[in-house]
Structure formats: C-alpha cells, structure tokens
Amino acid sequence: MIELLRVENLTKKFGELTAVDACSFTVKEGSITALIGPNGSGKTTVFNLITGYLPSDSGKVEFAGSSIRKQSPGSLYRKGLTRTFQQARVFADLTVQENLVVAGGGKWTNLFGRRITAEDQSRAAELLDEFKLSHVADLYASELSWGQRKLLEFASVLMSKPRLVLLDEPTAGVNPILIETMATHIRSYNAAGVTFLIVEHDMSFVMRVCDPVIVLDRGKTIAVGDPETVQSDPRVLDAYLGD
C-alpha cells in the first residue's frame, strides 16, 4: 500500500503549551487508521493542522505526495481530503438534502446554477438511502436527532467522493446500534477505496474496525502498530494509566 498521508515533525504551540510536538506518522492508502491517545494528547489539534484549520509552526504534511501544509480547508476538500468534527456540525438552516448538495463542491460557475440539479438529487438520494435518511430528506438539519446529525455529517463529507476522510470521534454520544451502523459504513466505503483516519475513544470500536493504530501522548507519536501490539505496548499503558 502506498502512503496517502505523511506527517513529519509537525509542531504546534499555543503560547507556552506545546500541543503537538514533532509528531510524525503515515497513513497508507486503503487503510482504516486510528489515532488514539488520552484526553489532551493533541489528536484533534493534529486533525486541525492536517486539514488547514490551524497553521502549524513547523513540520511537513504531504497528501498524495504533495505538500499541503499551508493550504486552506476548502482547497484540501477539493483535492479529496475531508473531515468531520467531534460535535456533529451540520447546516441547521438547510434541509438534509441541501446539506448533502452544498457539500458536493464544484466549480464557481455552479453557484449560479439551479439550487438542486437532477445530478445532485440522484447523488444525494443514493447517500440518503444508504444512511437511511431518505425519510427526513426535506427536514431542516436542526430538526434531526443527535445520531441523525452524526450520520448526516458523515454522509455529507462523502458527497465529494474523497480519497481520505478524517473522522473525529464518529461514535461519540451515539447509541450502540448506531455505532454498528457507523462501523458498517466505514468498512463499506473503505472497501470502495476511501481511506480513513479516525480519532476515537471507544477502544472496542478501534480494535474492531481499525488497523493500524497510532498512539499520541503529549503531542508525540509514542506507538504505531496493529491493535493487539499497541494494546500491549507498555508506553501506551503508561500513557493511559499514568505512572
């Protein structure tokens, strides 16, 4: 498998606090990679640095062989790198279908075209059907339950047919049935060629779905390997359980 994402010596400081400290890892194309670590270890900051939401102080980030360190989230999205957030973020004043269509991207000129084209409608319908959201397609996103919002956010980042999706705690706050639904969708899209990098606290989910697992502690990569190896690594146990 070739490297789709390479992070090298990535560093970010907030004042005196070093949130990400010379962090390095790679994500292979076609993998479902987990990024885990105790609270405050810098996982979400790493996501923000990779996706252009925060500027890094130093280090390199390469996506599909090109440097993306100073690119905007929008430009990365158009290149096939997209993400979800810890708290499901959907556009409350748009309908569920419109949430998908607006995430479909496209050229400048498309802005002056019809709100929803037949092509948009058909692509959105496919995803709505897959994510079992067809019955709420015309509701505003603000009218969805939390779990439905999580599904909608996940579905919307798939509208642009991305190569790499960064999922920030996809199972946070959702019920066990929906966790299984999430796992099924991740596996199914991975089988279709989408690579995933997932920040997650639910270890059972990580162990079942992800391979390899990258562990961060205090902004540094402390372990990388398959779930079993990482689980028994003393540095990981130390990071989670303390001295």
């Binding site: 996706t51 997209t82 607006v102 496209g106």
Partner: peptide, 8 residues
C-alpha cells in the same frame, strides 16, 4: 468554518 471545510 464547516462551510470552508466542505469546499464553499
């Protein structure tokens, strides 16, 4: 922020 992140 989310809008920027989905290519708007």
């Amino acid at each position: 922020d989310k809008a920027r992140g989905v290519g708007v």
